[in-house]
Simulated assay, not measured.
Amino acid sequence: MAKPQASRAMVSVGRRLKALRTAVRPRLTQGAVGDALGKSQALVSLMEMGGQLPTDHQLMTMLDLYQVPEAIRLDLLAEIREARASQTVWWEEYLSALPRSLVRLIELEDPARKVSIATGALVPWPAQTLSYMQEVDEFHVRENGVERTATQHTVRLRRQQIFFRPDSPAELDALCSEAAVRAQVGGPVVMKSQLDHLAEFMQRPNVTLRIIPFSAGAAAATQVNLNVLDYPTPNDPGVATMDTGTGVAVHEDPKEVRARRRRFDYLASKALTPDGSLELIEKLSKEL
């Protein structure tokens, strides 16, 4: 079975192969490409849907047929080899304690170049401290048990590491309501620690966090948990996810992704600047 990171790369490679084939004039059919490979049309279709990566020989045969420039050949070959090189993933050891929808979300997050998040009245998960998580999820302890909930907190902390990678850390663009930084989750001590951590986290060059003030009206009151994920591959439309309360809904259709981007952009237009947001966070911390 393909590893999660590879599956995203496979979809990307498939899209690129299809675009290269359909750009040829006169247009080549999948059947004609299959004949050139000595394989079936079904295999070509499977490759273009991201279900299977071509071998190096198959790739070069296809690119010869499509008359693709050398630079693009090398780029595609490197992308395929990177996908093949993916080995075990860190979250495999936690699978028994995680909902399937959360596993799918992690699979999509891990290779992302940029994560855009709107979290309503909660501090965005990439910036949550463990103490804050524990207080927020107090109810889930009753539902899922202490051990399972603790495992999910460990996983959330591991997920945060995509923003601290030494090579190419993911970019974060996060929004939350003023309620997220005013509510004393866990009491003054826990919340002050969370606010101080948030202020420090915002100093990272790959992090932008903005507060939607109460004065923004409905935008500040919206209870939304929205993620838009972007990837390094050119022309990848990205993925949008939303917390449904019982799981995570994943939207990969480009139209659905664009609709979520528009919602995020609308909320962002109501937010304070990053500097104004930091000033508010530091002010609230001093008051605790």
Results as ranks from 00 to 15, higher is better:
Ala6Arg: 13
Met10Gln: 10
Arg15Gly: 06
Arg16Glu: 15
Arg16Val: 06
Lys18Trp: 09
Ala19Cys: 01
Val24Cys: 08
Arg25Met: 11
Pro26Arg: 11
Arg27Gln: 15
Arg27Asp: 05
Leu28Trp: 04
Gly31Thr: 13
Ala32Trp: 00
Val33Asp: 01
Asp35Ser: 13
Ser40Pro: 07
Met47Trp: 06
Gln52Tyr: 07
Thr55Ile: 10
Asp56Lys: 14
Gln58Trp: 05
Leu63Ala: 08
Ala71Arg: 13
Ile72Cys: 07
Ile72Thr: 15
Leu76Asp: 01
Glu79Met: 14
Glu82Leu: 15
Arg84Trp: 08
Arg84Glu: 15
Leu95Tyr: 11
Ser96Phe: 11
Leu98Gly: 01
Val103Thr: 13
Leu108Thr: 04
Ile117Cys: 00
Ile117Trp: 00
Gln128His: 05
Leu130Cys: 02
Tyr132Trp: 05
Glu135Gln: 14
Glu138Gly: 05
Val141Lys: 02
Asn144Lys: 09
Asn144His: 12
Gly145Thr: 03
Val146Arg: 12
Gln152Val: 00
Arg159Pro: 00
Gln161Tyr: 05
Ile162Gln: 01
Phe163Leu: 12
Arg165Cys: 05
Leu175Trp: 04
Ser177Lys: 02
Ala179Val: 09
Val189Phe: 08
Glu200Trp: 10
Leu209Tyr: 01
Pro213Phe: 08
Ala218Val: 13
Ala219Asp: 11
Leu229Ile: 10
Pro237Trp: 02
Pro237Phe: 02
Met242Leu: 15
Thr244Met: 09
Val257His: 07
Arg258Asn: 12
Arg260Met: 15
